[in-house]
Amino acid sequence: MSTMVVVDRISKWFDDVVAVSDVSFALGPGVTALLGPNGAGKSTTLRMIAGLTPPSQGEITVLGANPRSDRAVRGRIGLVSQQEQLFAEQRAVDFVALAAQLNGVDDPTAAARWALDTVEMDPGDTRPIATYSKGMRQRVKVAQAIVHRPDLLLLDEPLTGLDPRQRLQMTSLIQRMGADGMCVIVSSHVLDEVERLGSNVLVIAQGRLAAQGDFHAIRALMDYRPHRIRVRTDNARGLAAGLLSYGGINGVTVVDETELIVDTNEVSLFRKRIAPTARWAQAQLFEVHPLDDDLESVFKYLVGR
């Protein structure tokens, strides 16, 4: 696999705030998901890879060159940034054709039509972009990023604002571009999105690279961590006894007759056992609620490992 992006111990700080801290990775063709909660440093990392802002420390090489100073490399990068502004009074085809022209594409209009077609937008639409919905604007942004068929495509939260059908279509487009040999980096804070996008995942949390690897390995890492679950029932003591008789439960705290807190490292096993155990204990289940299953706490765990 040829390496297309090399990120070597980069850090980025804005005054006293450290946005990215000592992050390194190398990527080749295919789709890589940059997963992390909001404010984790994903967008800053993408902006540095695109050359829009220099790292405060460390080095980034894209296709063998510095993306900030090498003009030719800029022509091989496509970026869908998170900001929503487009040239609102323009038609989509004109906006995308301008991107093609500035990227040196021979027939900008034909390229723009192809790009809009690819994202399922009508190239003949005469309405200005200002009249478009958020999802349509998002697709226009993707079209201007792929119109010159870049080698590296950076997408910052590209599924935001899309309806389920558009998400499916966009996901499939991203997968297709990755399969065609393009290096595609997609940022997201939604685990399910990442699962559908591709197998390679970089988890960024608190500006640090918390985990890297195959999606299923990352998913397992997230599952096999300490979980705390609140269970509401009409027989807390009976249910606690039943749960403790199995393995895989670290501890059970009976809060009162109707509520208990379960600590476990094997959440999938707990999911399988809670219903049969409740039946055995003749306990009715009113609620099973994970107390630390939000992404923030998952990332905190990964960072703290």
Binding site: A50, G51, L52, R71, A72, R74, G75, I77, L79, S81, Q83, Q85, L86, F87, L98, A99, L102, N103, G104, Q144
Partner: peptide, 14 residues
């Protein structure tokens, strides 16, 4: 201010 500079800045032009 409108953050549209990126559409020119990130092109292989001077």
């Amino acid at each position: 201010e409108e953050r549209t500079l990126v559409y020119f800045w990130l092109r292989p032009i001077g």
